[in-house]
Design a protein around this nucleic acid. Structure first.
Lengths: 355, 355
DNA sequence: CTGAAAGCGCTTACAG
DNA sequence: CTGAAAGCGCTTACAG
């Protein structure tokens, strides 16, 4: 009983062709006819069936978004950016995951084969990068939100992980810290390498190459941060700063340092990476490198949408810079205080993090 | 050039009808014929077009999920539960938001009219509950993840907000706390009322009705928690415990209490609500009422899917209980320690919260 | 057990 | 400026 284009046509006394033309603004139509058709459309509250339009036109007006996990702390921001952009353009966003092993990759592949979406947004496809590359090769529009795209020409959005590492190093150097401890992220992520490289090079250039003992492995968890600090402290290896590759591990470091009785930032200054909401609430609040997650989601979605409009996808990554956010863990006394250092300060975005 | 059912049919030397029957396992088919068709399907890697199947069958095999915001700390868990369940059933999950005012509600409405999905999962529709109710009335399968559904018969999944408040109260009573401060959530959420009611009744039943001065408004933010504590402290109003309606505001309370030099839990015991990952990392770690967000997402998705299979949606809410998680903020000495109290302890789920 | 044909609800040459 | 007809890729009575 849902109303169709045929209902509109007969009620307006025109053909379905004419209704379709009014709907899509194609072809010349007598103003009076168009007005009449529009009136009927409004009267009946007619909306074309997405299925039928999709079949006839060969596209779905749906964007797929493949994510590794929905529970990572910054994932909501990326998603929000992407979904806002996609919806504003009148598209839908289909959420896809393929982190439940082989079976779920098959699921994903069959969604692709079924042509359930016109293009794909992908966040850090760990195991599936090759498959994604193949899809891209076969003509499916794909935009990555990832760093590893640097390696091959691939449409993607990235941030300045290396630059972020540099800014953290410059900040700690300005504070006179000579022996920073680096707590790395998972090795398999490109961002880990970049953040380390930027940080290490800056210290090296300042005549203070990193002590290899002070560059320790981590896995982006709170626990890896606190363990790293405890281990070095027990081993009697000294450090006067910490650069952790994400905020969670920085938070772990913060707690472990305080547990040993050292003061932050006087004895040890701590810098994280990400700027998730948690960073503003540690004790003291965490200085960190802000990643523009929401903006990256928006930019990736915009790229994909304009590709649908015929704009070719750029092969070089679109890079949105990080920003150093200085808080108490490196020296600002008041917990409420917060200032940005660097070329651009992100808008004072509201983080709607209630409940 | 994508291959269609016609390609498979001609290559297998049968009609499209037969291919369709093999695909869908309908009707009697000669074993040999079926095998041949299946071989061709595999050989060609044929997957039916979702658009065409949708149009022919009148359903999309897509579930819509309407969320108020993607950046709330527990949203990822709900989403993960829903998407896992939906994908395992071979369905897709279309993410919808309508929090950008009137325009975005229209966007949503038009997705509904376009019949872009077969059913809808809805999380706490603040402004749109009436519209959702109307859609449900018109026959769109809808499952709510919300508490307010209690009020009208509506298929929904909820948790024991009242019971959670009770368990918090019992725990604090056992610890001998007689003057608890309650930091409420936003008034417009049903959960706020329920959590307060359960807590207040339990204290009342123990002969210790709450002091009205100690029940203060809040908005689920970190800041509202710290402000509430500071304000009462300055006013010289005494309390020996805090029950905050979410973990963020409990975290704020925690910091403010420590800032005044009082010890936790010796001087003030603190209990939160939600059990987001943050709760395990406060100083001291936060005792809190665990909400089964992922399970709620899964349950809601399962309800909707079985409705597609013909099982009628229950009008009474499906309730998944909360669990009290006891940590250092009410008395466990070691930060690593954690034990569950109550009828059911949630599985020791891995929170994949890396990066 | 199998197939020709109509139909799902649109769009788009093609013809006028 | 407008419409009849074919087509998008499937499913489903209907007939055999």
């Amino acid at each position: 009983m849902p109303i169709t284009i045929a209902d509109v046509a007969s009620r307006a006394g025109v053909s379905k062709t004419t209704v379709s033309r009014v709907l899509n603004g194609k072809g010349e139509i007598h103003a009076r006819t168009a007005a009449r058709v529009r009136a009927v459309i409004d009267e009946l509250g007619y909306v074309p069936s997405a299925r039928a339009v999709g079949l006839a036109r060969g596209r779905t007006r749906v964007v797929g978004m493949l994510v590794p996990a929905l529970t990572w702390p910054w994932m909501g921001e990326v998603l929000q950016g992407a979904v806002d952009t996609v919806e504003s353009a009148g598209y839908g966003l289909m959420l896809l995951t393929c982190n439940r092993g082989e079976a779920s990759l098959r699921q994903f592949a069959s969604q692709v084969s079924a042509k359930s979406f016109d293009g794909l947004l992908v966040i850090e496809p760990e195991g599936s990068l090759d498959y994604i590359a193949e899809l891209h090769g076969r003509g499916l529009p794909v935009v990555l939100i990832d760093d590893r795209a640097h390696q091959r020409p691939f449409p993607s959005v990235a941030t300045t992980n290396r630059g972020g590492g540099e800014s953290a190093a410059r900040h700690l150097l300005e504070l006179g810290r000579r022996r920073p401890l680096v707590i790395k992220g998972c090795e398999e992520f490109g961002c880990t390498q970049e953040r380390l490289a930027g940080f290490a090079e800056t210290y090296h250039a300042a005549g203070l190459p990193l002590d290899p003992q002070l560059v320790v492995g981590g896995d982006f968890t709170f626990d890896c941060g606190s363990r790293a600090v405890s281990r070095l402290t027990e081993a009697g290896i000294d450090f006067d700063a910490v650069f952790a590759h994400n905020d969670l591990s920085a938070g772990g470091a913060l707690q472990a340092i305080r547990a040993t009785g050292r003061r932050i930032p006087q004895d040890v200054a701590v810098v994280g990476f990400d700027d998730i909401p948690y960073a503003a609430h540690t004790e003291p609040p965490l200085t960190t490198v802000h990643q523009p997650m929401r903006e990256m989601g928006e930019a990736a979605a915009r790229m994909l949408l304009s590709c649908f409009e015929g704009v070719p996808l750029p092969e070089a990554p679109s890079v949105i810079p990080t920003t150093l956010i200085v808080r108490g863990s490196t020296g600002v006394p008041s917990p409420a205080d917060r200032r940005a250092v660097g070329p651009r300060r992100p808008e004072p975005e509201p983080f709607p993090q209630i409940r």
